[in-house]
Amino acid sequence: MNGSANGRPSWSVGDDLEETVLPPVTRLGLIKYAGASGDYNPIHTIDAAAEEAGLPGVIAHGMLTMATMGLVLSPYLAHGYVKGFESRFSGMVFVGDELRVGGRVAGLEEREEGQLYTFEVYARKGEETVASGAVDFLLYGD
């Protein structure tokens, strides 16, 4: 990636975004997300409810994992915004899991407002992909 002096990024199709290793998932983190999102489904916070649902322990909200995938574009928000964001949830995330998020530039389209970049993004733990999807990021023209 090349950037100009004011921090406006410039990507080429095929570029990789730097992979970020996130701090391990904690129960307190899940409780915070439950409160902030209003999703109080107890399989995300209470062991007994998770066990009753046949799970070995509480699992992270899919929407939390999705939001963490979106962090890869967070540094560039002064210059554009997320126009589209899609996630498929393919694996479960448990307390203690350490996720890695990253992506690559998959497409570029000129729009009236600027450039619309499409990124393929993922969240992985070890070899397992727990979520994957795409972010459309509109980078405003100069």
């Binding site: 399989i43 649902a53 929407m63 996630s87 949830f89």
Partner: peptide, 11 residues
């Protein structure tokens, strides 16, 4: 209880 969130998209 028991529903699974398969995917989400926002535009």
């Amino acid at each position: 209880a028991g529903l699974i969130h398969g995917s989400h998209r926002i535009d």
